[in-house]
Every structure is written in structure tokens, then in C-alpha cells.
Simulated scan of single mutants.
Amino acid sequence: MGIASIIDTHLHLIDQSTLSYPWLSSVEALNRDFRYEEYALQAHRVGITQALHMEVDVAPSDIEAESGYIAGLAKREGSLIAGCISSCRPEEDGFAAFLERQQANPLIKGFRRVLHVMPDNLSESALFRENIKQLEGTGLTFDLCVLPSQIEKAIALIDLAPGVQFILDHCGVPDIKSEGLSEWHSKITDIAKRPNVTAKISGVVAYADSDTWRIETLEPYVHHVIESFGWDRLVWGSDWPVCTLGGGLATWVAATHALLQGCSEAEKAKLFSANAKRIWSIA
């Protein structure tokens, strides 16, 4: 029986000769170029057939240039790139005009504003919340990258914009290395009650101890997300190259397959591709 094809909904590409990434200087292990060619070689080997590029928190002046850079890669013959999730600044007055420009670009499938490294109250301003509500009816999603301690604030945002499709990145960023299961567990249960949230099974190898993690280490986290959200509200992402901090792309794909042992082919197909196709209208 063939392995289901995979849509990677969380690919980061880094090209420091083209774009500026202010945060990279503080993360030595990732402070180099991670270009499309390197990713594509590995992706083809593990069954990835399409990918969505996820914004890489470039300098604000480079936000739209990043989308243009990805558009160029998407035009290559045989490109894996099927769309991109753009960075944005909902806390700023210019968001409405920015959104209008992005709606004219068919490559843009949604947005993300990195929150897990920002002050907790960023998403609580009236302007931020009103701007997120503008996504209602556009078909564009909003990714939430938040710490467990910030999930309650994410829920408040979600409840104020019930017509927006939110994507919870990286299983809610559990602190696997410190075995931070209890606080995270109940908050995942709570956020999963919101029908306009889909969870992304991605990135968790980077939150475990790179030297000691095993499948059993990841299992309670991944399985709780699956049980909480159900198969129709799950997508898969590599979080490449961040996943290299926990073993790399092939290791994470293999770990995912191991974590899904006993699941049906239909369930795996939903996680790996069918749900992503539906949510982001990927052909």
C-alpha cells in the first residue's frame, strides 16, 4: 500500500542575500541560508509533494518582498511551493491597505503575526482585533504561534472573530524538554472546543531534548492534539529548518509515521493532505 503524499504547511526558507532576518543573529544554529534547493531535495525523498511557505519574521520593510521572493520560486518548473503564509502587522493602521494588496495575490493563502516572542498583550489591542476580524469572508487564514501561557489570550482573539479560520502552530508549542504537559494539556482541550481552529502537527521535535527524545517522548503531545481536534481539523508541517534542531526533516517525517501507527489510511490522508487542500484551496 502506498504512502500518502504530504503537503507541508510550514516551510521556512532563508536567503540572507535577499532579505533581512533581524532575529537570526541570536540563533546560531539557524544563522545561515536555508534555500529552496536544499529543502526540495530532502522533501522529494520523504514524500512531500507540495508546500506552503511560512513567513520567517523578516524585517517589517521586507514583508512584501518576502512574498515576492517566494512567488519567484513558485514559478519554477516543478516547484513544490503551492502558496505562502505572509507576515503581517495587525497592530498597525496600515493593515487594511496591506490586506487589500494581498487579496490581489493568489499565492497568498493566509497570514501570521509571530506572537510567542512578543508581549502577551499585543493581540489584546482594539486595533489588532478589528484588523483580524477583517479576514472574515476572505478565505485567508491566520496562524497562531503562541506559548501555552498565551493560549488563553489566543482563545479570546478566536472568540471575537468566529468567521476567521485560525491555525494553531506546532501543537501549541509545548515545553517537551521540561515535560510541561499538565498546563499545556488542559489549554489544548479548551482551544480545541473552538470550531474555527485547526491544529498543525509540526515543530515538536524542536521542543524536545535533541539528544534523548524518542517516539514515546512526543506521543502524549501529538496524540492529545489529535484526540482534541479530530481528524478533520488537523494539518501537518515540517517547520524546516527549525526541525533540524531536533533531528531534521527525514527524522520528523519518520517520527510522524510512527506516531500514526494504527490509524487508518483515510485518517492519515486527512492529516497529510486532504485538510490542507480544503482549507487553503490547494489544487
Rank of each mutant, 00 (worst) to 15 (best):
H224K: 12
A255L: 11
S61R: 12
P195Y: 07
K187M: 03
T251A: 08
L80D: 13
D57W: 04
H223F: 01
F111T: 06
G110Q: 13
N275F: 04
L271D: 03
F128I: 06
H44M: 06
L107I: 15
D33N: 15
T256L: 09
L181P: 00
N196C: 05
D159P: 05
I81F: 09
N131V: 13
H185C: 10
T49Q: 13
T49R: 11
S182T: 15
A126C: 11
G247P: 04
D232W: 08
A283C: 12
E136D: 09
E152D: 09
D232E: 13
V253L: 04
H170S: 02
L157R: 14
G47P: 04
T251R: 11
W23Q: 07
D169Q: 03
I108M: 08
P174Y: 12
E179D: 15
Y221R: 01
L140V: 04
V114L: 12
E66I: 06
K75T: 02
F98D: 08
F98E: 04
N131K: 08
S178K: 13
L147T: 10
S228E: 07
E179N: 13
H12Y: 12
V235I: 10
D33V: 14
D239A: 02
L218P: 05
A156D: 12
I132T: 07
L80Y: 14
R35H: 05
S228Q: 12
N275Y: 03
T9F: 08
A96W: 07
I70W: 10
A4R: 10
I191H: 11
K270L: 05
I226C: 00
S25A: 12
Y69G: 06
D239V: 01
T9M: 14
L127M: 07
S5R: 14
M54D: 05
K193C: 10
E219Y: 08
A269F: 10
I63N: 14
W240F: 13
V114M: 14
D120E: 11
E130Y: 03
T141N: 01
M118E: 15
D143V: 03
E100Q: 14
